[in-house]
Design a protein around this nucleic acid. Structure first.
Lengths: 201, 201
DNA sequence: TCCCGCGCATGACAGGTGTCACACCGGGAT
DNA sequence: ATCCCGGTGTGACACCTGTCATGCGCGGGA
């Protein structure tokens, strides 16, 4: 019997996924949590074999949680379950030692299959996602460009960014300009969206 | 036995919700579809008692589908199941004759309860959502303002919008300006976000 | 009836945005 | 050592954006 911890912020969906896994004879949902920052405590309390983590959660996102669990040397394997198959997410997950990555629009059987594979010590990647991650290549943005894109994404004005980073406004605009050109976009907002899409910021 | 049609674009989630409903003795999932524009045909083919529709779907969004089903005089009751409890969505759903509205982060039992209530001819509204819909008030945007905000949201440039709508660029900017002031935002992009948040466009 | 308010529409103006040419510095390659 | 490349940084310029004053037409009260 494989004991599973389920972390997803949408209560009804979490229950539904639990019902789905409950149909499998060899899987058992040992615990459910609705926030990223509750995962560590639940892992300590219930000692699950596999943790299934959503990325988009309040408290702490699934990737950060995965990194923390890996750093803490947790025993359980980790499987990411997400709506957004962003190439950068997959990279970050792999770097954190995650061995399973399933998209929410994958076929129904795929989640159980991924959990079994991961529990057996294997890896399970959505083929589509892996391909697009390869196609996307490495993050072409410099540290400054990422930083400024992040601030723009948070709604910060050019003048405030220049102040925070001790730069002139022209310089801030210039980094945005190079970032936009690298991303093939023609406005700062489109660039932020594109960078987020790729999981680069 | 209540026969249910399930429409949600995320395959795995759809299967999970089906598993959840399958645990209820009096509910049966008669059909599943993954696109809004497949709902009408499935309703015709399987004649379900209740249609559970996600809002965010390719092909046609759940609210539009609900309006079309109502206009076509379909027999089945409709229950909206969505991640986003936007006030405007609830209003639009009510106007389309939808009698159930459940958020994806509602408690697990709530969906089955809503389906039963709706099938019995009653209404089922998430209390939180109903309250915020009341608080949000009516859509203050004029038709032109909505149209232009929608186009901006789709990434259309000012010049192209002016051309499409046979307006001068200045006029387009002016509608954006009044919309921004109504929404309390100071950039076109923030205004689009705010309007989407309220379900106004 | 007259007028007020509202939606629609326009052009002018000030200020913000994106691009460009240019400069400096540190690290490889030759 | 020298050259070149990429990251960092700056100001100037053209263009786009948001606001304002203004005008038109229509429908609902006084």
């Amino acid at each position: 019997m494989i004991r599973v911890l389920l972390a997803d912020d949408e209560h009804l969906i979490r229950g539904a996924v639990a019902a789905l896994l409950g149909l499998e004879a060899d899987l058992e949902v040992a615990a459910e949590v609705g926030r990223g920052d509750e995962v560590a405590a639940a892992v300590a309390a219930y000692d699950p074999d596999v943790a299934v983590l959503d990325i988009d959660m309040p408290g702490a996102d699934g990737l950060t949680v995965a990194e923390e669990l890996a750093a803490a040397g947790a025993r359980c394997s980790i499987c990411i379950l997400t709506s957004f198959g962003r190439p950068g997410y997959l990279r970050r997950a792999m770097a954190a030692g995650v061995r399973g990555f399933v998209a929410k629009d994958a076929p129904t059987e795929e989640l159980a299959a991924a959990i079994r594979k991961v529990h057996a010590g294997g890896r399970y990647l959505d083929a589509e996602l892996a391909a697009s991650a390869m196609a996307a290549g490495d993050n072409p943005l410099t540290a400054r460009e990422r930083e400024i894109l992040r601030l723009i994404g948070a709604g910060t004005e050019t003048a405030r960014i220049a102040e925070l980073l001790h730069l002139s406004e022209g310089t801030v605009r210039n980094y945005l300009s190079t970032a936009m050109s690298k991303l093939g976009e023609s406005s700062r907002f489109a660039a932020v969206r594109a960078a987020q899409e790729m999981g680069w910021i």
